[in-house]
Amino acid sequence: MAKTTDYIYGLYDDEVDLMDAIKVANAEHLEIRDVFTPFPVHGLDPLLGLEESRLHIAGFVYGGIGTLTAFLGMTWIFTKDWPIIFGGKPYWSVPAFIPITFELTVLFAAIGMVVSFYIVCGMGPGVQEKTLDDRITDDKFCIAFDKSQVDEHTANSFFKNTGAGEINSKTL
């Protein structure tokens, strides 16, 4: 079993309060473990110092694999494996390959990125994801600290000062 972490988290009602709170935490050098919001909040990533996702680089690689699979695959099939003349065209008819090459590029990139994303996030069919609080998927904005990094007393006073509506602890 994976090791557990003790969290202390505060819930805010508004993303503007949340952003202001993060600025305070940054100023006080409190190590934020994670932030949860019900919808994407503009300007959050740079505040948290998050790096740009590398998912799109993976997407490019998957797409490239799709391009090569389709193009080289059709080249092999129609010139070596089972050459057929269609409408008097040459065996190696590049324009006819383009639509399928395009489709497989998109398909490989899409499926590859979805699978990568699921693996990275530990998600998958049947996996029960544990959440700190159900309301972070609805209307609450959450800042979570790891109790081993930020002690409970500091976290409590931080949440109170920055206007969190609720403060809770949970072990996941």
Binding site: G87, G88, K89, P95, A96, I98, P99
Partner: peptide, 12 residues
């Protein structure tokens, strides 16, 4: 561009 080209190329 390609849609125009490919259809004309295909129909010949």
């Amino acid at each position: 561009w390609f849609s125009q080209f490919m259809l004309i190329w295909y129909a010949n």
